[in-house]
Amino acid sequence: MHKTTIFLFVVLALASGCSNNKKSSEKSAETADTTVTESKFLNEPLVEHIFTADPSAHVFEGKIFIFPSHDIDAGIPDNDLGDQYAMRDYHVFSMEQPGGEVTDHGEVLSVDEIPWAGRQLWAPDAAHANGKYYLYFPMKDKNDVFKIGVAVSDNPEGPFTPEPEPIAGSFSMDPAVFEDEDGSYYMYFGGIWGGQLQRWNGGEYAPDGEEPAADQPALNPQIAKMDDDMLSFAETPKDVQILDENGDPLLAGDNERRFFEAAWVHKYNGTYYFSYSTGDTHKIVYATSDNPYGPFTYQGVILKPVQGWTNHHSIVEFNGKWYLFYHDTQLSGKNHLRNIKMTELTHNADGSIQTIDPMNN
């Protein structure tokens, strides 16, 4: 596999638990005026030679590996089903440390290599088990129905070889695989609107399936424990309940808090943190539980809205510090042509997470 090393130096000036990237030009003391130009963005893109989004970050082999989606400009008008997000392959990126060089390991999997593929290789994730690396990806099959597939490699940088069929019992999109401290692996997944989760509301696929009424409980993300082979589910997927402060399910009309897409789970001081995107209100929020299955109680906002419609993230610990990976549209200004970023994330003494504003307001 050809590897291209991008000498992209990402400046992470860590202040108040966040990174603050600035471009400045200073004139000498003898000059009357001093000009300082500050980016309106909190962080600068990690990758600039291609468009990337939905970054799933993991620490493998002592390095940070990022598994994002790869945006292309297919000339498709924007719509609520996300047809403009016409991704066709994946690249894997790595960095030795935050602020270091970012290496593009090239194309590791494409639509053409997946036997059951229809279209749209959306947000992936990865896991390491059994001496292998597993790349989990959502894709519409030849009937235009989202399923979740898996591809395998001996190395985190790929290339990955796809299984001939999607994971049995999988549906919708945005897989995120969490490894618990006891060695168990769980996949969290789902997304409404273009992610088709509402089409499975009755337990069976219904092409005309709709969201619940605004005063009814919101659709839940899904969880399934992975089988030891990491290629299949060990159980039928179950709902992940997200509750409000009173112990009641979040409602479908609670757009500020209800689940839309982009599930992610990390564990901190024995507590499970389930974070996700609110979609049309453009925030990354989180809920907590003492059990990987939940129920999870809503806690607050991790990331305020970015520039661009979508908001999708991951959270990883590296050398004792926590980092949030996310994307925006700084390079293109177009919703479907995004770029990945990272910033430091801080847990407060009480376990809450400090809210991050991705813009320098």
Rank of each mutant, 00 (worst) to 15 (best):
R119Y: 11
G106K: 11
A126T: 08
G158N: 06
G118K: 00
W116A: 00
N155H: 15
E101V: 14
G99P: 10
A127K: 05
W116M: 00
E157Y: 14
Y136E: 05
G118L: 01
Y133C: 00
D104P: 13
L135S: 01
V108I: 09
D144N: 15
A151G: 09
E163A: 12
G158T: 09
W116L: 02
V150Y: 03
K142D: 03
T161Y: 11
T103I: 15
G99I: 07
V111E: 08
Q120V: 04
L109D: 12
N155K: 15
S110L: 00
W122A: 08
V152Q: 03
P138L: 10
A129S: 12
E96K: 11
V145Q: 10
G100S: 05
A123H: 06
Y133K: 04
G158L: 02
P124F: 04
D154E: 15
D144G: 01
D112A: 12
V108D: 08
F146P: 02
M139I: 14
K140F: 03
S153I: 08
K140D: 06
D141L: 02
H128L: 01
Q120K: 02
V111M: 09
D154P: 07
E113Y: 09
W122D: 09
D104C: 14
P138D: 09
L135G: 00
V152Y: 00
W116H: 05
E157P: 10
Y133Q: 06
L121E: 14
S153Y: 09
N155W: 09
P115H: 13
A123C: 03
G131M: 02
A126V: 15
V111N: 11
L135Q: 00
K147Y: 11
A151S: 07
G158R: 02
Q120S: 05
K142F: 07
Y134A: 00
V145D: 03
F160E: 13
D144T: 04
N130P: 00
E107Q: 08
F146A: 04
E101A: 15
E101P: 12
E107T: 15
Y136I: 07
E163R: 07
P98K: 10
K132D: 05
Y133I: 03
V111L: 15
K142W: 08
S110R: 04
F146D: 01
M95S: 13
A126G: 11
P98G: 14
